[in-house]
């Protein structure tokens, strides 16, 4: 494989990694909807029983932070694809050309 082909392969690979990272972040939709629902219900609960405000708020924040997990998995995959994967793939390509 000559140098031009190697550059082309690296370019295609980096583009696909970026595309994959973007696709992985679709996972952000789920927690967004879920946390929105949770906050809406918490607002309803506070409206019905204003005296429980502090309890409801702390439980809601706790639940929101746990519901965020799935989105964070997507984020971690995206970060790995952008910052970690290119290095190892480039090493593989270099080893192939040797």
């Amino acid at each position: 494989m000559d140098n031009g082909m190697l550059q082309l392969a690296t370019g295609i690979m980096l583009g696909l990694l970026g595309l994959g990272a973007g696709c992985a972040m679709i996972a952000g939709i789920g927690p967004g909807i879920g946390e929105g629902n949770a906050v809406a219900k918490a607002c309803e609960a506070i409206g019905r029983q204003p005296e429980c405000k502090s309890d409801v708020t702390s439980t809601m924040i706790m639940g929101c932070a746990i519901a965020e997990t799935t989105g964070l998995y997507g984020l971690i995959v995206a970060i790995l694809l952008i910052f970690v994967a290119p290095g190892s793939f480039t090493d593989i390509l270099k080893n192939i050309t040797k």
Binding site: E68, T69, L72, I79
Partner: peptide, 12 residues
């Protein structure tokens, strides 16, 4: 999940 939750929040 515990490890990734904590790590992901701070890193993001």
């Amino acid at each position: 999940s515990m490890a990734f939750r904590h790590y992901g929040n701070i890193l993001s």
